[in-house]
């Protein structure tokens, strides 16, 4: 996934990480508060695509993320499409097991849209905020500093971990490693030849990393360590956060308690019926 920080001076970049967390939280909660794909689509357009536009994220990164997601999305779509039951089946693909229904389509669309929203929200957050600022934001929100740093180290170490896994895979391939077994037990065994070295190397590296950060005074006085950047919650952050809180409350209320229509597939199904001219 293209989740590297993209430097910029846009409004969205300059928001305080805490304000961005509020946005992140709002979108995430709303995405699970609604079921109807039409609502999710508008959430995606206004809640995610608008920030992408405002932050001027390069199209290349978006497309790259999208391309990586295609196989998962298709899988998601078809699983949800065919395994959605308790509705009027229009026709059977495998009688009694796989059926096709408009509710199924709406349900599947809803699932992938939600998935889309989640992935892209994370991406926008990472792309517009340096990891250390995110961590600082979390720390200011009362996350213990140790956890914050651990999180930062986790992110910093990802490229190394990918490298390591690749090397291990190459080393096993060079010894004729195969994983294209039909038998699930053999398949599992085949993967253990990747997992065990990865695990052991990670534990070993973990110990060395711990020794190295201890040697740089990590446990000196975590509560009084310096953060080079101070976060400032400006007026625009207040406005933005307030807007998000209002949106969140509104969404949760109408989504979960208030109005029945937000938690059905009715609108999309009606739309699909109109589209396919099904009675």
């Amino acid at each position: 996934m293209a989740t590297e920080y993209v430097a910029g001076e846009t409004l969205f970049h300059l928001l305080d990480p805490r304000a961005k967390f509020m946005w992140f939280l709002t979108i995430m909660i709303l995405s699970i508060s609604f079921l109807d794909p039409l609502f999710l689509l508008s959430l995606f357009l206004f809640g995610v695509c608008v920030p992408i536009k405002v932050a001027k994220l390069p199209r290349k990164n978006i497309l790259k993320t999208f391309r990586h997601l295609i196989p998962i999305l298709l899988l998601f779509f078809f699983l949800n499409l065919f395994f959605f039951k308790h509705t009027k089946i229009l026709f059977w693909i495998i009688p009694g097991i796989l059926g096709f229904s408009l509710e199924g389509v709406a349900w599947a669309l809803s699932a992938i849209l939600r998935f889309f929203i989640m992935i892209f929200t994370v991406m926008v957050l990472y792309s517009t905020t340096p990891i250390m600022s995110l961590i600082l934001g979390l720390t200011k929100l009362k996350l213990p500093a140790e956890y914050g740093i651990a999180l930062g180290i986790g992110f910093g170490y990802v490229p190394e971990l990918i490298n390591m896994t690749r090397t291990i895979m190459d080393a096993q391939k060079a010894r004729g490693w195969r994983f294209d077994y039909r038998n699930p037990v053999r398949k599992l065994l085949a993967y253990s030849s990747l997992l065990i070295p990865t695990l052991i190397n990670s534990i070993r590296s973990g110990t060395l990393i711990a020794a190295s950060i201890e040697s740089r005074g990590f446990s000196h006085d975590v509560r009084h360590r310096t953060y080079r950047k101070e976060l400032k919650f400006r007026e625009v952050d207040w406005i933005f956060t307030t807007a998000m809180v209002v949106l969140l409350l509104f969404g949760v209320v109408i989504g979960n308690f208030g109005l029945k229509w937000a938690w059905t597939l009715e609108y999309t199904v009606t739309f699909l019926k109109w589209l396919f001219k099904v009675a």
């Binding site: 990393i209 975590v222 360590r225």
Partner: peptide, 20 residues
């Protein structure tokens, strides 16, 4: 196994940050 932070700058600053 000694480089653990997202940028070179963060990496070099890490020690002095810990000491306040």
């Amino acid at each position: 196994t000694q480089l653990v932070l997202p940028t070179v700058r963060d990496e070099i600053a890490f020690g002095p940050e810990n000491y306040g």
